[in-house]
Design a protein around this nucleic acid. Structure first.
Length: 573
RNA sequence: CGGGGCGUAGCGCAGCCUGGUAGCGCAUCUGGUUUGGGACCAGAGGGUCGGGUGUUCGAAUCACCCCGCCCCGACCA
């Protein structure tokens, strides 16, 4: 490709509305442009990288025995009614009516559609197992799209769905996909970590997420310093040292204007861990749909919202407003679990707690001497607290207990789910087993955020000058930078350009009438792996400069440039 | 959805407080001089100042409403 004819508008300044480095660089280097919130154009440069990632994903999926197909983006509401997710999925599901007033949605994921397809074609256990995948544009109407390709509303995803005659077969495929994902992310040159995960709106009984480690990651993952335990904080467990306090009678204490945990603890001269933090939530979905509930953790712990939703089998839990507090007989800043007119959940770390301090459900008043078992007898005990750094690892050898929890930020680029019969049952994915009996298929699903990976790679691999692409992902492997406009430099460049193309190398020839600095800056910004600089100076001395974006440079004779490029490429890949 | 910020040329910004012919840098076009790290000189094009309503002789500027964008939170593969 000749740069003078190529559509890659670069920017000198960072766009003001980009926050993270990948977003800034993608815009500046002319890879993407924003159309509307969370929706982007992929310009030629961006598309080339996307295609390269797709190629690796395809290769590995094929190698793992999966077959590619393509499912529709527009899906009828009926299928979602069957799975129960038409109501359950919430506002992320973009619903609309067609001209016949038929309700449809844009596919945020494809369990329903694939089950519908397979249910109509599956006859015998002999057809199983089967793993089908696609690489396709998804739409999720995210609450808050941000960071460019990291969290878009429209994005490219690889989603695979496997069907099995039994659970054992599913476990084999789950493991197969797990190792396939490890291979894919390794080939992409990423530092990543697989962690145990909550199953979220997809559901199922087992799940792992793959996180690219980066400070800009939106997820927090917890891992053990000692053993191989690692989990998303939405799910992570740990063992905290549970302090004990003396039993006492329940009594009121005046705490004027003391609404925050720290204030009350300081005022009373106790540790925050002696306080019960009671949070009031509005629940949507599940057995407590539409109700207000209370959830308690220790004063020095944080409540994990996903764990709470899981404990209640709810779709959404959100902090209730002040008016809701009144309906359960309490008020903001002075809530306590005792005597509330609603369901109360208590974190396991509080199960046996005595001598605690909590709000008195009266203005300017707390209680001391609270005993959970005695004073909140009908509460449900559940794991609600979020793990903290330095907690003891629960999975480590209980005798030694050497491990402690550490935390890191991650960008979720893949997730695998063991779904069981959650979708196959309502959508009727049946087959005849060895005994001629009708049986329900067992299912797994496996996603990779393909467009998000573009951002993830940049987050992990860039410097002050711009992106740094590994050879396998680079939009072009080589850029020829022609200096000046002398006839000799131009013709030498063009010859090399043609030679490299014939050798099957993707090469960008910067033949623009720009000054050298401009060309260097653009090539570096775009992160192209190999730069060949051709100018009169180099030609006269027969010392052509070949640079690698990631580091080294060398000067070699014009005649051996092509060979040098070949050997660099062989070495790097 | 709550809190905060912003919206002026393709990009980055000033002007707004204190109303009076819309500016700067980069980018673009023309001509010239340059040419191994984002050149210089001269000239030119490009704007319903996010939209609407109001106040006013007069609104980018003041008031109200709406829309969009960014950040934090809530929420979410």
């Amino acid at each position: 490709m000749r740069y003078s004819r190529f559509f890659a508008p670069t920017l000198r300044d960072d766009p003001a509305d980009a926050e993270v480095i990948s977003h800034k660089l993608l815009l500046r280097a002319g890879f993407i442009r924003r159309v509307t919130s969370g929706v982007y154009d992929f310009l030629p440069m961006g598309l080339r990288v996307l295609r390269n990632i797709e190629a690796i994903v395809r290769e590995e999926m094929t190698c793992a025995g999966a077959q590619e197909l393509l499912l529709p983006m527009v899906q009828p509401s009926e299928l979602w009614q069957k799975s129960g997710r038409w109501e359950k999925y919430g506002n992320e599901l973009l619903r609309f009516k067609d001209r016949h007033a038929h309700e449809s949605c844009l596919g945020p994921t494809h369990e329903e559609v694939i089950c519908d397809l397979v249910s109509r074609e599956l006859r015998s256990y002999k057809q199983l197992p089967m793993n089908l995948y696609q690489i396709q544009t998804k739409f999720r109407d995210e609450v808050r799209p941000r960071f460019g390709l990291m969290r878009g509303r429209e994005f490219v995803m690889k989603d695979a769905y496997s069907f099995h005659a039994d659970e054992a077969s599913l476990q084999v495929e789950y493991q197969n996909m797990f190792t396939t994902y490890q291979r894919i992310f390794n080939r992409l040159g990423l530092k990543f970590r697989a962690v145990e995960a909550d199953t979220g709106s997809i559901g199922g009984n087992q799940s792992h997420e793959f996180h690219v480690l980066a400070e800009s990651g939106e997820d927090l993952i917890a891992y053990c310093s000692h053993c191989d335990y690692a989990a998303n904080v939405e799910k992570a467990i740990s063992t905290r040292v549970i302090p004990s306090f003396d039993t006492a009678e329940l009594s009121n204490i005046s705490t004027p204007d003391m609404t925050a945990v720290e204030d009350v603890a300081k005022y009373l001269g106790v540790e925050a861990s002696q306080l019960v933090k009671t949070l009031i939530y509005q629940v949507t979905g599940g057995a407590f749909d539409g109700q207000i509930i209370a959830a308690c953790v220790r004063g020095d712990d944080s409540l994990q919202g996903v764990k709470l939703a899981r404990a209640l089998a709810a779709d959404i839990v959100e902090l209730a407003d002040d008016a809701a507090l009144k309906t359960i007989g309490s008020l903001k800043g002075f809530v306590g679990p005792q005597g509330l007119a609603c369901k109360v959940l208590i974190d396991t770390s509080l199960q046996a707690a005595v001598g605690m301090v909590a709000g008195a459900n009266k203005i300017d008043c707390h209680v001391s001497g609270l005993s959970i078992a005695r004073d909140v007898a009908d509460a449900e005990i559940a794991d609600l607290r979020e793990v903290r750094s330095d907690d003891a690892c629960s999975k480590c050898d209980s005798k030694g207990s050497e491990g402690y929890i550490k935390q890191a930020r991650g960008i979720e680029v893949g997730q695998v789910f063991s779904l069981g019969q959650q979708y196959t049952k309502p959508l009727g994915v049946l087959f005849q087993d060895q005994h001629g009996k009708r049986a329900i298929a067992t299912m797994g699903c496996y996603g990779i955020g393909v467009s998000r990976l573009i951002a993830a790679v940049i987050e992990q691999c860039h410097d002050d000058h711009g992106m740094i692409w590994p050879l396998a992902l680079a939009p072009f492997q080589v850029v020829i930078i022609t200096m000046g406009k002398s006839e000799t430099a131009m013709s030498a460049s063009e010859k090399l350009y043609q030679d490299l193309i014939e050798a099957g190398i993707e090469v960008l020839w910067d033949d623009r009438k720009e000054r050298p600095g401009v060309k260097f800056k653009d090539a570096e910004l775009m992160g192209l792996p190999i730069h060949v600089v051709i100018g009169d100076r180099g030609l006269d001395a027969d010392a052509i400069e070949v640079r690698q974006r990631a580091g080294s440079k060398q000067a070699i004779s014009m005649a051996s440039v092509a060979d040098t490029i070949h050997s660099i490429m062989a070495e790097v890949s």
